[in-house]
Design a protein around this nucleic acid. Sequence first.
DNA 1: GTCTATACGATGATAGAC
DNA 2: GTCTATCATCGTATAGAC
Lengths: 222, 222
Amino acid sequence: MATGSAMSWTDDEGNHDGAPGRSGDSSRRLVEAAVEAFADRGYHATTTRDIATRVGLSPAALYVHFPSKQALLTEISVVGHEAALDLVERSVTGPGSAMTRLRAAIRAFTAWHAERHRVARVVQHELAALAPEHRDRVLGMRRRIEGAVEAQLVAGNASGEMDVPDPRAVARALLSLSVDVARWYDPRGSRTAAEIGELYADLAARMVCARPDQAGNEGDRT
Amino acid sequence: MATGSAMSWTDDEGNHDGAPGRSGDSSRRLVEAAVEAFADRGYHATTTRDIATRVGLSPAALYVHFPSKQALLTEISVVGHEAALDLVERSVTGPGSAMTRLRAAIRAFTAWHAERHRVARVVQHELAALAPEHRDRVLGMRRRIEGAVEAQLVAGNASGEMDVPDPRAVARALLSLSVDVARWYDPRGSRTAAEIGELYADLAARMVCARPDQAGNEGDRT
DNA sequence: GTCTATACGATGATAGAC
DNA sequence: GTCTATCATCGTATAGAC
């Protein structure tokens, strides 16, 4: 957690008190408002007035909860990267062959970028806006994600179920494909986040499979 | 062309006069500086002073050549979209089967997003910063690009050389994969733009091919 | 914790001389 | 076509009352 000041903003749980439309947790609501604003208009185009006003607070009230606009971005980026990394690491340490694990990782990573596309947009498109010290921390997590996927490709080559001439480049391509979902995904579209995750797992399997007849799932679609 | 005021800024041709480091064409140099700045820092984070200073001009001089910062972005976005659309349309009207045409389109579109990654970043990541009237124009070009790729998938299904259950979704995925190259491509990396284009054409073929043994090229790699 | 008021630098754009 | 000087506004952040 970046600051500990807004523990559970990643969860979409309901309000904890009785007031409708008002949770009482201003920190969490400020983060949620910042995610919306940063995702829609970009970090630099978003003003602290924007964020505070969305929550129904004065501009000054923001600074009671966060020391700066930068701190809000850092919170969102770090927590978001932690969530994405966690998804991938759970998938690649789960049961099954390298192909099964790769499919699970792509399925979960992709669905997250669709389901949480606003957070994902901030995570993926505002790296350059992060302060250098936080950017380094986040880049480490990104390397772990790429390494986890690349390891499945190497394992799949070794077992013979995959045929990937350049695992590093293909790992980057697979993750890039998933990441870009956050750029174009619209929840009003015809496909659910889970459906896109499944489609992308299929595409990934076809991209790496040694014998294309087996690119389909292995009974692991739930 | 958006304004006609900077006809050939997309070309990387040398200076036309004898002065070293000084082309004399301030409009073109301003567009190039704006591309660099917008790509590195984003449209909203870039100041008109930034752009003018990079060219060695005063802030006011910019307004002799462009009526606003918005006009600079519009010029870059429209010309960039025209270039990308042209590449794809040339590829899909070229010789060969649907697979050959698809490979050519992905190869060219991907290589462009690597080779011209700064322009491409502006084109792909600053859509929301465009004024509504210009955004509409650009969205039309984007639909034509998606339509051209989708048409190859439909044709490939019909001829039997492809097996694509959802041509629209897969067309979007293929283009998304290529577009995202602009986000991460670094010319200092180990692969050239052309190599990435070729790799992505291979990946695309594997994603859509009916019989995977033929996912490789058909002698069309030049 | 929230408000009103405000400091103060940066920003897009303009005026007018050369 | 470029410059210097400047304007009006916006944006982050702070001060101090309640």
